[in-house]
Design a protein around this nucleic acid. Structure first.
Length: 553
RNA sequence: GCGGCCGUCGUCUAGUCUGGUCUAGGACGUCAGCCCUCCAAGCUGACGAUCGCGGGUUCAAAUCCCGCCGGCCGCACCA
């Protein structure tokens, strides 16, 4: 049994996660987070929030999971997520249409209309199974589709990423943030992808939790926080290295990565560094992490540069836990074009620019005289008057001389409009849970110990009476309640021998076990046992809360 | 979606080839009691599986056949 299989068994047995709908045979790609799974999820989310949101002064939102068709039409998902599926009308088998054609020696560009693909198939390709040549071609969308409202044909999609929520709501969020760039907007929530074949436990799911930041910025400016992480070492597999098939990443500091333009924007370098620190805190050592660039053809339609943050998971190999993409102004520009809303931002100029502009000033009395019928219309449309060769025109019609004057005016421009660029770090929560469990899994004296970092341990303190008599259970319960009230996540257990109980809590990664013994009754002290060293320390009951708080800080 | 392997108590597994002795056996875990002064000790007992789901063959199906669902691996896919 490999490590991942052991983890899946442990997860199921002790309640971290398991496959959903088991009583109906299970449905691929859907998992349940059990009691311990929810706890560790919350703690991972909280740690992420601290590193990626709070410490950067970013803001967080929650937008709907369902979005109307138009949002994903604008975002490019509808167009780029469609794979043409060919269905054999005789045996009902389904294939990727472009693959069938390729096997038949026909290369089709992605933009080929479905009708043409169908025609080509019906003329030239036999079904590999039943040899029929009658095909139907349909787009297969990897987004889940639904209808909005009972009586309409208003199509909607379950979002494949939370990102669109931040783009669509950008204008108001920018206003709420009082018009400042850079602006970081975070969102934590479910995303849905109708994967063709979900695999590897919780690695590829059809419904999963994402944690994303969309950082909106002026592309000409750097990242003010880069200095904080300038010496963090980044193992990079750049486009160049990936293309050459090099397996060993080049290790550079975050600052070097930005200065040598190995990453296309300093913000991207900053997020790579945070990402590495974050994974360190989840228990992944440096040499089990790397940032692998996506090649031109592999990147998402919106991305100018993408680094997958990969961690090495024994049993699976390198697994992507985050994608860091430089999305440029693609998303805002697309939504601007589709919605007609102005999503530009005014940037103050370093130096005001002085310009001389020519302006038409109408002489109203003269206009009334010269245009007795339509002078009102002319005044109304005065903003549309254009100047050409020193003369004024309205809708290509030259205005009569004497009805206006052309005046020169000096204006000072202090702002300029830009569409902000976006850098996006995007994490999959379930994969992080698996990662944390993988690196925490140890075997000590034939017992499984989950050495989870204290910060993400689902339960924090176990409380045991040494034996179940002489008032020890009562005293232990008292202490458990005290710890609960102090804010710890605790567990009480009096069943079986003390050793068995230690083993039970080791297996689910509880960092400390407090044991009430006979000495407790004499001097109000308990033993605190460390999960990883199995060493014990005697602590006074009234100092216990403070003692534990120090351990967790 | 394709190909290979696989699906029996919570978990691991015996049994499947060679249908009946399987009202499905064991181990671990769990629970209760006894015992019990620090690392899965012991004793007693209990709970726990219509053998993934559905259909078929047969006097008789965990076992043979078909379909479906699910899992793992490889290919493909992976915003």
């Amino acid at each position: 049994m490999n490590l991942q299989e052991k983890i899946v068994l442990l997860a199921k047995r002790r309640g971290f996660f398991w496959q959903a709908y088991e009583i109906y045979g299970g449905v691929g790609g859907f998992y349940v987070l059990g009691p311990l799974g929810v706890r560790i999820r919350d703690k991972i989310v909280e740690l992420w929030r601290k590193i990626f949101v709070k410490e950067n002064g970013f803001i967080e939102i929650e937008s709907p999971v369902i979005a109307p068709y138009v949002v994903f039409e604008a975002s490019g998902h509808v167009a780029s997520f469609k794979d043409p599926m060919a269905e054999c009308l005789q045996c009902k088998r389904k294939y990727r249409a472009d693959h069938l054609l390729k096997e038949a020696g026909i290369d089709v560009p992605e933009s080929t209309p479905l009708d043409e693909i169908k025609e080509m198939l019906n003329e030239k390709v036999k079904c590999p199974e039943c040899k029929s040549m009658r095909w139907n071609v349909r787009p297969f969308l990897t987004m889940f589709e639904t209808k909005i409202g009972p009586y309409t044909e208003n199509r909607g999609f379950l979002r494949p990423e939370t990102a669109q929520g931040m783009f669509v709501e950008f204008k108001r969020l920018y206003e709420i943030s009082r018009g400042k760039l850079p602006l970081g907007i975070a969102q934590i929530g479910k995303g849905f992808r109708n994967e063709i074949s979900p695999r590897q436990a919780m690695v590829r799911l059809r419904e999963f939790n994402m944690m994303e930041v969309e950082l909106f910025m002026n592309p000409e400016e750097g990242c003010p926080y880069l200095d904080r992480v300038k010496d963090v070492k980044l193992p990079l597999l750049t486009e160049e290295l990936v293309a050459k098939g090099v397996k060993e990443p080049v290790v550079v500091t975050a600052r070097e990565a930005a200065e040598r333009r190995l990453v296309k924007h300093p913000w991207l370098a900053y997020f790579l560094a945070l990402s590495k620190i974050f994974l360190n805190k989840l228990g992944v050592p440096d040499d089990k992490q790397r940032f692998k660039a996506k090649l031109e053809g592999e990147r998402a339609h919106y991305s100018a540069q993408t680094f997958d943050h990969e961690v090495y998971l024994e049993g699976y190999g390198w697994v992507e836990v985050a994608g860091h993409a430089y999305r440029t102004d693609y998303d805002l520009s697309s939504h601007m074009a589709k919605s007609g809303e102005d999503l530009t931002v005014s940037i103050p100029l370093d130096k005001p620019i002085k310009k001389v502009v020519e302006k038409v000033e109408l002489i109203v009395d003269k206009v009334k005289i010269e245009y007795p019928d339509k002078w009102k219309e002319i005044l109304k449309n005065r903003s549309k008057i254009k100047i050409k060769d020193g003369k004024a025109f309205l809708d290509d019609e030259e205005l009569k001389e004497g009805t206006y004057e052309i005046k020169k005016q000096e204006v000072v421009e202090i702002v300029r409009k830009i569409v902000p660029h976006v850098v996006e770090p995007s994490f999959g929560v379930e994969r992080l849970i698996l990662t944390a469990l993988t690196y925490a899994y140890r075997v000590k004296e034939d017992r499984v110990v989950l050495s989870l970092p204290r910060e993400i341990a689902p339960l924090e303190v176990a409380v045991f009476p040494l034996v179940t008599k002489d008032g020890l259970p009562e005293k232990a319960l008292e202490i458990k309640v005290m710890l609960d009230k102090a804010g710890f996540y605790t567990v009480y257990d009096e069943s079986g021998s003390i050793g068995r109980r230690y083993a039970r809590v080791d297996e689910i990664g509880v960092p400390f076990a407090v044991t009430v013994d006979y000495q407790t009754l004499k001097d109000e002290s308990v033993t605190v046992r460390d999960r990883d060293t199995w060493e014990q320390e005697r602590v006074k009951v009234d100092e216990l809360v403070e003692y534990l708080r120090r351990k967790f800080s």
